[in-house]
Deep mutational scan, measured.
Amino acid sequence: TFTSIVTTNPDFGGFEFYVEAGQQFDDSAYEEAYGVSVPSAVVEEMNAKAAQLKDGEWLNVSHE
């Protein structure tokens, strides 16, 4: 299960995956970082959410 939350205070020191406002979700980078295949429906969902981000916001993507 993939989830996401919007934050204005990303923790770059941890093992977190963020999408910056104005960027798209990079499923290849996510797969490389976590060894998890990302279904195309999830990629579309995360890109739709990322498109709604305002300046200074980040989308924190995770999975269980």
Rank of each mutant, 00 (worst) to 15 (best):
V36H: 05
M46S: 02
I5A: 10
F17T: 01
G14D: 07
S62H: 13
M46E: 01
S28N: 12
G35I: 02
E20H: 11
V43W: 06
F12C: 08
P10T: 03
T3K: 10
T7M: 07
T8Q: 09
H63T: 04
A41R: 12
D55C: 11
L53H: 02
I5F: 15
G35Y: 04
F17L: 03
T8S: 10
A29K: 12
N47E: 03
V43P: 00
S37E: 09
V38D: 02
M46H: 00
L59D: 00
A51Y: 05
A29D: 05
F2K: 00
E31Y: 15
F17R: 01
E64R: 13
E57C: 05
V6Y: 03
N9T: 13
Y34E: 00
A48R: 13
F15L: 13
E32T: 11
G35R: 07
F15C: 15
P39N: 04
D55L: 13
E57T: 04
D26Q: 06
P10G: 03
M46W: 10
E31M: 13
F17M: 02
T3M: 11
E64W: 10
A41H: 14
E57K: 02
D27C: 15
I5T: 14
E44V: 11
T7A: 04
T1V: 13
E16S: 14
A33C: 14
A33L: 15
G14E: 07
L53T: 01
S37G: 08
V43K: 10
A48M: 13
F15K: 14
L53M: 06
V61R: 02
G56P: 02
A48W: 13
E45N: 06
P39A: 04
V38Y: 00
F12Q: 06
V6C: 09
V6I: 12
Q52R: 09
L53E: 01
Y30R: 01
G14M: 08
M46D: 02
A48V: 10
N60Q: 15
N47L: 04
V42E: 03
H63C: 05
E57G: 02
F17Q: 02
V38T: 03
A33V: 10
P10A: 04
E45H: 08
V61D: 01
K49C: 08
E31S: 13
N9W: 08
S37Y: 10
E31P: 01
E32S: 13
D55N: 12
L59Y: 00
T8K: 10
F25I: 03
V19T: 05
V42F: 07
Q52P: 00
A48H: 12
N9I: 08
S37T: 13
E45M: 11
I5D: 07
T8V: 09
Q24M: 14
L59Q: 01
G14Y: 06
M46V: 10
P39V: 03
V43S: 07
F12E: 05
D55M: 12
G35D: 05
F15N: 15
A48Y: 11
W58Y: 10
G13V: 07
E64I: 14
V38C: 05
P39L: 03
E16P: 06
E45L: 11
E32L: 15
V6A: 04
S4M: 08
V42R: 03
S37Q: 12
T7Q: 04
A29Y: 07
V43F: 06
P39C: 07
E32R: 15
Q24A: 11
S4F: 13
V42Q: 02
A41Y: 14
K54C: 06
T1L: 10
V61H: 02
V42P: 01
S40T: 12
V36I: 13
S4V: 09
E16D: 11
E16C: 15
G35L: 05
A50W: 01
Q52N: 11
T7N: 03
Q23H: 13
V19C: 04
L53D: 02
T1A: 12
A21V: 07
Y34L: 06
S4W: 15
N9L: 08
V42G: 01
S28Q: 14
Y34R: 07
V36D: 03
N60C: 15
Q23F: 10
F25D: 01
D27R: 15
M46T: 03
D26H: 05
F2P: 00
G14F: 06
N47R: 09
N9M: 11
D27L: 14
F25L: 04
E45A: 10
Q23E: 09
E57M: 04
N60F: 14
E64Q: 14
N47W: 04
E16V: 08
W58A: 03
E31I: 07
T3I: 13
T8N: 09
V36A: 04
G22E: 03
A33T: 11
D11Q: 11
N60S: 14
W58P: 00
N9F: 09
G35M: 06
E31V: 08
T1M: 13
A51E: 08
E57W: 05
G22A: 04
F12N: 05
E32A: 15
A21P: 08
M46P: 01
D26F: 05
A48D: 09
E31D: 04
H63S: 05
V61Q: 01
V19R: 02
N60K: 15
S4C: 13
A41E: 12
D26C: 07
E31Q: 13
F17H: 04
S37F: 10
V36E: 03
T8I: 09
A21T: 05
K49P: 05
E64G: 12
S62M: 12
H63I: 06
E57N: 03
N9P: 01
G14N: 09
V42A: 05
T3F: 14
H63E: 02
K54P: 01
P39Q: 03
